[in-house]
Computed example of a mutant assay.
Amino acid sequence: MVIGATGQIGRVAVGALARDGWQVTAVSRGGGRDATWPDGVGTARADREDGSALAAVVGDGCDVLVDTVAFGPGHARQLTGLAGRVGSAVVISSVSVYEDDRGRGFDTQTRPDGFPRYPVPLPESRRTVAPGPDTYSSRKAGLERELLAAADVLPTTLLRAGAVHGPYCRTPRELYFVKRNLDGRARRVLAYGGGSRFHPVSVHTLAELIRLAAVRPGSRALNAVDPDAPTVAEIAGAIDAVMGARVENVLVDGPPPAPTVGDTPWTVPHPVVCDMRAAERELGYRPVVEYARTLPETVAWIERRLRGREWREAYPKMAASYGDLFDYAAEDAWLAEHAA
Rank of each mutant, 00 (worst) to 15 (best):
Leu143Tyr: 12
Ala149Glu: 14
Ala151Ser: 11
Leu175Thr: 02
Asp183Ala: 00
Val164Lys: 07
Asp152Cys: 06
Lys179Asp: 13
Leu148Glu: 02
Lys179Gln: 15
Leu158Glu: 07
Arg187Ala: 03
Leu182Trp: 12
Ala149Tyr: 06
Ala151His: 10
Leu159Arg: 14
Leu147Trp: 07
Arg173Val: 05
Glu144Asn: 04
Leu175Glu: 10
Asn181Glu: 13
Thr171Ser: 11
Ala150Ser: 05
Lys179Arg: 15
Pro167Ser: 09
Arg187Ser: 08
Tyr168Leu: 12
Gly166His: 11
Asp152Ala: 14
Arg173Asp: 12
Ala163Tyr: 14
Leu159Glu: 09
Ala161Arg: 03
Pro167Asn: 12
Ala163Pro: 09
Gly162Asp: 07
Ala163Trp: 12
Val178Gly: 09
Leu175Lys: 01
Glu174Ser: 03
Glu146Pro: 01
Leu158Thr: 02
Val164Arg: 11
Arg145Lys: 14
Cys169Asp: 15
Ala186Trp: 08
Thr157Asn: 10
Tyr176His: 13
Leu159Val: 09
Gly184His: 12
Leu159Asn: 14
Phe177Pro: 10
Leu158Val: 00
Leu154Ile: 00
Cys169Phe: 08
Leu143Gly: 10
Tyr176Thr: 02
Ala150Gln: 02
Ala149Gly: 05
Glu174Met: 06
Leu147Asn: 01
Thr157Phe: 11
Gly162Leu: 03
Pro155Cys: 01
Leu147Ser: 02
Leu154Ser: 03
Leu182Arg: 12
Leu175Gly: 03
Ala150Trp: 03
Asp152Asn: 04
Leu175Trp: 03
Arg145Ala: 10
Thr171Lys: 15
Ala186Pro: 07
Arg145Tyr: 09
Thr157Leu: 11
Ala151Ile: 00
Arg187Thr: 06
Arg170Thr: 15
Arg180Val: 05
Arg185Tyr: 07
Thr171Val: 15
Leu159Ser: 11
Tyr176Lys: 04
Gly184Trp: 15
Pro172Lys: 07
Glu174Arg: 02
Gly166Leu: 11
Leu159Trp: 12
Leu148Phe: 00
Val164Tyr: 10
Cys169Asn: 15
Arg170Gln: 14
Leu175Gln: 07
Arg170Met: 12
Ala149Cys: 00
Glu146Arg: 00
Lys179Asn: 05
Asn181Val: 08
Leu182Met: 12
Val164Gly: 08
Glu174Trp: 04
Asn181Tyr: 13
Leu147His: 01
Phe177Val: 10
Leu143His: 06
Ala186Asn: 06
Pro172His: 10
Val178Arg: 07
Arg173Tyr: 09
Arg173Gln: 08
Glu146Lys: 00
Ala161Glu: 13
Val153Pro: 04
Leu159Gln: 08
Leu182Tyr: 06
Lys179Tyr: 09
Cys169Gly: 14
Pro172Ala: 03
Glu146Ser: 00
Arg170Tyr: 14
Arg170His: 15
Ala163Lys: 09
Ala149His: 06
Ala149Gln: 05
Arg185Ser: 01
Leu175Cys: 02
Ala150Phe: 03
Glu144Thr: 01
Thr171Ile: 13
Lys179Glu: 15
Ala149Asn: 04
Gly162Asn: 06
Pro172Gln: 06
Arg187Gln: 11
Phe177Asn: 09
Leu148Gly: 01
Arg145Cys: 06
Pro167His: 05
Tyr168Ile: 02
Leu148Tyr: 02
Cys169His: 14
His165Thr: 00
Ala161Asn: 09
Val164Pro: 15
Val153Gln: 09
Thr171Met: 15
Leu143Asn: 02
Val153Thr: 06
Val178Cys: 07
Gly162Ala: 08
Ala163Asp: 12
Gly162His: 07
Ala161Leu: 15
Pro172Cys: 04
Ala186Ile: 02
Gly162Glu: 12
Arg180Tyr: 07
Glu146Leu: 00
Leu158Cys: 08
